[in-house]
Amino acid sequence: MTQIALWGSYHYGNFGDDLMAEIFASFLSSEGHDVTVISRNPRVVENASAKVVDKLENWSAPDEPLIVMGGGAMLSRDTVLEFLARPASRAVDSEFKELANFASRVNARVLPISIGGSGTPDGSGIFHNRRRFFRGDAAPEGTVRLKGDSTLMSRVFGKRYSYFPDVLFSTSAHLPQVPKPTSTARARVGVNVHEKRATSLVAALNNGPLSTQFQFVPVVTHSSAFTGHYEWGHSEADRVQYQSVSTFLRELASFDAIVSDKLHVGLVAATFDVPFFSFQPKAKTRALHEELGLAQAVTEEPDGVVAQLASLAAGSAPQTLRDRIKSEGLDQAADGHRQFLLTHA
């Protein structure tokens, strides 16, 4: 049995990051490892075998500590102005400083698993303590979730990180099965977008002919404990909001389609055979769709989303991520992260 600290963006009540903590805690515990999740949220994971402490300093580290960096956008890029303007970016930078200092002091090995950025080999927007950490010796090997991220690690940091599809493609392999509910009279579409992108999209959905065929439901991926809400519908009574991993997975599986500007809410829904239409996505989401030849599932305009849903209603929808999971075996390939971790733990 190995004592392992699980470290990531687990402080902020975000579904995608918390799901990664749950998956890593689940399969490490099932292999007999003693897992401690580093999070200020004492209920960050539902796995009863995992312990939770608020910071690395409070972890009872063994003589040869292993810290698993459990997924997330650890290679994401900021412009200088974004870094200065976003408290979250500076908070992550500070957390990397704490990680580097702790690893150096106790001679810990850090193993990043399923981390990523935008899928491009440009590391110019990786600043300060993140850059110093990946240039250092604490994490000489690991895995990434986009092919371009492997190139970035080699070109920018001189390290060979293995590529496998995002670990969340293997969600169903590590967590209990979520039953697909029976359809309701009117198809339900989950809409998860930033408020600044929502006005024209929501108007196009609710004021057109689709409103008689679909019910559009706000999906909020941050828990109510998160104070900086920015997603459309976070105050709506009929919203579906992340509170626990198991409950939110059941909600995602219940939809007939998902429209989102994020990656993980749509990706995870796709593992439950739900079509995912990507609207004005971030670079990492766009890169994933391009790698898989799914440009037709990405749109910049509200009318494009309307057309996609109209095609879905007519039974002629373009291929989406759920189709590639089946045809490319992404769920099985994503298990490479687990195999790599268990080999190197």
Rank of each mutant, 00 (worst) to 15 (best):
P281V: 12
H344W: 02
R43N: 15
T199L: 14
S154N: 15
V106D: 06
H234M: 07
V178D: 01
W59T: 08
A61L: 11
E236V: 13
V156I: 08
P275E: 04
R132V: 09
T143D: 00
L75V: 14
A237N: 15
S29C: 10
N14L: 00
A61R: 10
S154M: 05
D63C: 13
F96L: 00
V219S: 01
P181F: 14
R160W: 07
L19H: 09
H194T: 11
E46Y: 10
T285L: 12
V298F: 13
T285D: 09
S162H: 10
S260D: 02
V80H: 12
E22P: 06
M20G: 03
F276A: 04
E31W: 08
S154Q: 11
P165I: 00
S235P: 10
A257I: 06
I113M: 09
A257W: 11
L292D: 04
F226G: 02
A287F: 01
P87T: 05
A253C: 02
G266M: 12
S316H: 12
G16C: 02
T320Y: 13
D149P: 02
H234P: 06
Q308F: 11
S235D: 15
A270G: 08
V45F: 06
T227I: 04
L168Q: 08
H337F: 03
V110H: 00
V274E: 02
A283M: 11
F226T: 07
R90M: 02
I4T: 10
R250F: 13
F134H: 06
Y161P: 05
D256I: 11
L263R: 11
L263M: 14
L146E: 00
H11V: 01
L312M: 05
S316M: 15
G116N: 01
R160C: 02
L267C: 04
T36E: 11
A295V: 14
N58Q: 07
R145T: 09
